[in-house]
């Protein structure tokens, strides 16, 4: 079972988290959960609307960056927050991601909102394969 954790002291003005996961897919979906946990109490978000995400990138870490950046974009586009994520990742020269994010419209009356995320940063950004799976560290601009 993978895990994610917010880490203090890495980026003073912003929010940082790290993720450990057994598979790449788990690494990506846990990162997405951490991203939205920064913005909203996840248990308050019902998975009633769905967006499809399709991306490709030249490197694996760029794929994670683009995936999280796409979710931040989707959040602003229709003022939605997400709580459930599915992805599949394949490699054929480039890395390719197909995924879904489920959530609902932002509603401060029904959801406990936290801090908006402006962007994903490359500051101390890391994705690496480890003995028992994968590790990622992400700093969010808030």
């Amino acid at each position: 079972m993978g895990r994610y954790e917010f880490i203090p002291g890495v980026a003073i003005a912003d929010l940082a988290f790290e993720v450990e996961a057994e598979t790449l897919e788990e690494l990506f979906t846990l990162s997405a959960r951490a991203l939205f946990e920064a913005m909203v109490e996840l248990k308050d978000v019902r998975p009633v609307e769905e967006v499809k995400i399709s991306l490709s990138a030249e490197k694996l870490d760029n794929l994670l960056f683009d995936y999280l950046a796409e979710l931040v974009y989707q959040k602003d586009l229709e003022a939605r927050v997400f709580s459930e994520f599915e992805v599949s990742i394949s490699e054929n020269g480039n890395f390719k991601l197909e995924g879904k994010a489920k959530g609902e419209k932002i509603d401060p009356a029904k959801q406990e909102l936290k801090t908006d995320v402006k962007a994903i940063t490359y500051h101390l950004f890391k994705l690496e394969k480890r003995d028992k799976g994968y590790y990622a560290r992400v700093v969010l601009d808030t």
Binding site: G9, D14, L15
Partner: peptide, 11 residues
């Protein structure tokens, strides 16, 4: 200028 991270402040 901040001196304390958001995570630490919330704690």
């Amino acid at each position: 200028g901040r001196t304390m991270s958001r995570t630490a402040a919330k704690k």
